[in-house]
Design a protein around this nucleic acid. Sequence first.
DNA 1: GGTTGCATGTAAATGGTTACATGATTGT
DNA 2: ACAATCATGTAACCATTTACATGCAACC
Lengths: 181, 181
Amino acid sequence: MDVKTLCLAVLSKGQATGYEIKKAFEEGPFSHFQTASFGAIYPALARLTAEGMVTVTVQAQDGKPDKKIYELTAQGRNAFLATLDIQPAPNQIRSDLLFLLFFAEHLPPTRILTLIDARVAAYTAMISQMDDLNAQGNCDPGHQFVRGFGRSVYQAAADYLATHRDTLVAQVSEQHHEAAE
Amino acid sequence: MDVKTLCLAVLSKGQATGYEIKKAFEEGPFSHFQTASFGAIYPALARLTAEGMVTVTVQAQDGKPDKKIYELTAQGRNAFLATLDIQPAPNQIRSDLLFLLFFAEHLPPTRILTLIDARVAAYTAMISQMDDLNAQGNCDPGHQFVRGFGRSVYQAAADYLATHRDTLVAQVSEQHHEAAE
DNA sequence: GGTTGCATGTAAATGGTTACATGATTGT
DNA sequence: ACAATCATGTAACCATTTACATGCAACC
């Protein structure tokens, strides 16, 4: 999933500027399962334009730079639909938190608790953010399915962290105790 | 979390070769939440050696290339412990499957089912793999916590997919129906 | 007066994947 | 015969992040 494909995907839902595409990954429908930065989006959009996948409409603005509204061409739409034929790679998860907790024995108990509590709060916030998106009503079955999936997984993650944090700390403390003897 | 840090982390659990480090990400304790390829591991190990973070013991073998057993130095151990002070970045998730299902309306119902069923099977396999690892007994609290976390999350993911797959297909079919009218 | 949001873009640096190269042994 | 496991390594290529550059308006 490169940024070019991701841009096509966002544009398949309607015209957008580079700025708006970024937002789709941050707050919008694509948030939580894909990302892209400006430094990747703008060049991607330029290449897509050169390749005839999208068209640009420049809209002058005062103060701000011209707004460039991108829109899929027929060719772009086909290219996008073609990407839907890929075999999906297994989910890629990179978790710094899990990395740290894997080495919990080297962490002070207070830090363990702080780390876990912060993450639980983050999950909770993301869940309510998703609920807000859901309430704003987008009945697209795909969107709902994906959001529901995210919700379930986040909920499970938060629950696990909340219910096992004390056990972890207790075990780590105990181990330190043993080591001290 | 760059590969150099990841190598230090694996070596903190004991000496290992580049090949074994790779395995730690594939089947071993680090599987599922971090990855690294040979093309990244070997150069990383070379740099770590040059920096005095690790020492190498070459062990001749017949037929195969010499085995290079790496081991942390005191400096390497300190460097590793220092990395445990980072603020963990939020989990990064990149899901091709979710990307595809987001656009379920453009997918034939049979493909949706195949995709979902394959993923459910993959989750199930990973869960039993984790259970095997757990049965092999590593009582390290950090390891157990991380594995338990993974298990819960995978289980939730599999459950969600299994219980919502038919609804998704039904909604997509219905939509196609409406569109045809 | 500082931060956030809007809005685009470039360039250097980073970091990693993929493919290649080598080669014995063991299992199917 | 063919694939997989063991075992290391290089190099070309790819993509992306980060930092920089610019600048107005609105809000606190």
